[in-house]
Nucleic acid binder design. Structure first.
Lengths: 352, 352
DNA sequence: GTCTGGCACTCACCCAATTCGAGTGCCAGA
DNA sequence: TCTGGCACTCGAATTGGGTGAGTGCCAGAC
């Protein structure tokens, strides 16, 4: 192992200076000048020397000066390099770990856990937290029930997997008696209980189009009703996000312009873009970070998103993350996101 | 009917001027000076005269000048008087009515209708819309079902009224077989189906404390399980709000200071205060308006809230409204809120 | 070649002075 | 009771000087 892998264009000294600069900028939020940096860096260099290095870093696109006579601040590429090569993450604060453990202990409702995780992320980081709902590993139909309402309407209750109950109302062409409905339900339960939803759906649709000689009237009715139920797309794992602490973002000076805020909050409301972004991290190993425009969504131009997938039973089922200004304390945020993902996964772990 | 009721302290002319002033201020958003008002009022009065009247209106607290040499703008009391006595509401725009009718037609899911109503309110008014979920008139237990899970856990499915399905998981002291659970469910259904939830709850709790000589084991188990289910408070009509278009509020110059916005959005997130506010209108007849500080919540100091209760079957079940800056076009907003409330009520009307 | 001190220059920011204009209050007279 | 006139007020915009932080560049030292 002769030489350690260093970005060829950046020597040790430049890297160190970049690192000190970014750390200071993240702390103070103001462009860092050569004199300050000379003092901070602890390298016994004069400001003039620092200026030369800065000029190089600027040429390489790692820092920029907001105007002629201001200090330098990191660019997106600067942050990127910092995060990839220079960062040493802080160990997670003990109190925070305790808090996470305490609130993310095994609990019953998935939705509730996700809510909490999201609130914890935002609470601990003082930024916005976001968590995707866990997708089901597989959706086995556990049971189907029919309940007659008035006016040829029937309430259908589906139990999927262990915990999830869905219900919908369908219209029938004639009124059915409770016992007819019970028979239909029994028929369907016998046929499909334990099967995967997608498979059930296919079967049902096939059955509906098939010749029906071999079915009696009850079976036909059952299949028709099931057809109505399973046509709806939202039976498929409908994806969704839970946010928390969006308002925290209003405190950051770099975001507090109304126009930007508006964009950002509209993105939160629509959810779609954020969801797509998080989905990109489903297959990533561990923490993934989008800095500024890297996300590809204008609304997030001034923001960074730190994400981590979470898994149940070794299978990734969702992603969580933190959204904050580009200038965030990555060294503190990363382990928070990482740990939260781990603990959420553990809490969701099925003991069923 | 000799004299029409006029606020004694304000003569016809002053009223007219106040009205013109407020109308203009609402349109333009800037303090109105005497010269402008003289031109606008169409009364052939000189600015000097107007000034005298303005001085009176200021003494009475209806208008105020932000500084010595600025025009006048309405105070909360000014708006109040305007809304109560001077306002002539606009007929609702035809397109808007159509849109409301089209989207609020009879539909199945309450939640869905409420979502739509909220989006419509915000979409048409370009402000924030809010709708409380309809409370159930009464909560009749329609059916209860038990489904065994692993580890002594049982999934309980409750059907309440016609459309609503709730589910929760309870822990039992020993595993039950499906048939045991079925018997327990049958027992409970026989006893309680059709009864009001609150009544059921009372009965169950009474049964649990009572001597159990006359119950067999199955009945005891059933009552115990039901006890667990009905203890949860959220079986009671849990109240909730649906917002839409909050981000619209970011466009208004009077709200676009970050601190205020933050307060406002935090209030939206907590929901509680807004809910309490809307609840005050449950018993009000028709449209009710809170102007500025009248709401009693700091977060809403710069906002007005226009609300209307909506009813199903002649019974008020919820409230909806629009939240916007104090300086809003009340004449346009009021009929929108009013009509939306009526149409939402109609759409929710049970045909069951 | 690398580092450093020196120097001229730039630019944001602050402060004070100035002007401008819209609007007011008050008063005397119709 | 209304009006025109007049002095006055105040915010907003403009200008200009001063300050300080910081830069780029260059020539000389190591």
């Amino acid at each position: 192992m002769p030489t350690k892998p260093i970005n060829p264009v950046l020597n040790e000294r430049a890297q160190h200076l970049l690192r000190v600069l970014i750390e200071r900028y993240i702390r103070e939020g103001e462009p860092v000048g050569s004199r300050t940096l000379a003092r901070d860096a602890g390298m016994d260099l004069s400001p003039a020397t620092i200026r030369n290095v800065m000029a190089d870093l600027e040429d390489l696109g790692f820092v920029r000066a907001p105007h002629t006579s201001a200090g330098r601040m990191p660019t997106v590429q600067g942050y990127r390099f910092f995060v990839d090569s220079l960062l040493t993450v802080q160990p997670l604060d003990g109190q925070d770990v305790q808090r996470l453990r305490a609130e993310l202990k095994l609990d019953l409702e998935h939705k509730d856990l996700v809510d909490r995780a999201s609130k914890l992320l935002s609470g601990i980081t003082r930024m916005a937290g976001v968590v995707t709902l866990p997708r089901r590993k597989q959706s086995a139909l556990r049971r189907i029930d029919f309940l007659p309402l008035s006016d040829n309407r029937v309430l259908v209750i589906l139990v999927i997997n262990e915990r999830e109950v869905q219900n919908r109302i369908i219209y029938t062409d004639r009124p059915y008696t409770p016992s007819e409905l019970e028979m239909a339900a029994n028929f369907l339960n016998e046929q499909f209980s334990g099967k995967d939803i997608a498979a059930v759906r296919e079967r049902i649709i096939a059955d509906m189009h098939q010749t029906r000689e071999d079915m009696n009237r009850m079976m036909q009715a059952a299949v028709d009703m099931a057809g109505q139920v399973f046509q709806a797309e939202d039976l498929q794992a409908r994806e969704d996000l839970v946010f928390a602490g969006q308002t925290n973002l209003m405190s950051f000076r770099e975001l507090c312009e109304v126009g930007k805020l508006r964009h950002l909050f509209e993105a939160f409301n629509q959810k779609r873009d954020i969801l797509l972004l998080l989905d990109q991290c489903l297959n990533a190993e561990g923490v993934h970070i989008f800095i500024g425009e890297e996300s590809g969504y204008n609304a997030l131009d001034e923001c960074s998103v730190v994400t981590a997938p979470y898994s149940v039973d070794g299978r990734v089922v969702g992603v969580l993350g933190v959204i904050g200004p580009t200038r965030m304390a990555y060294d503190r945020i990363i382990p928070i996101v990482d740990t939260t993902a781990r603990l959420l996964g553990a809490a969701l772990n099925p003991r069923e």
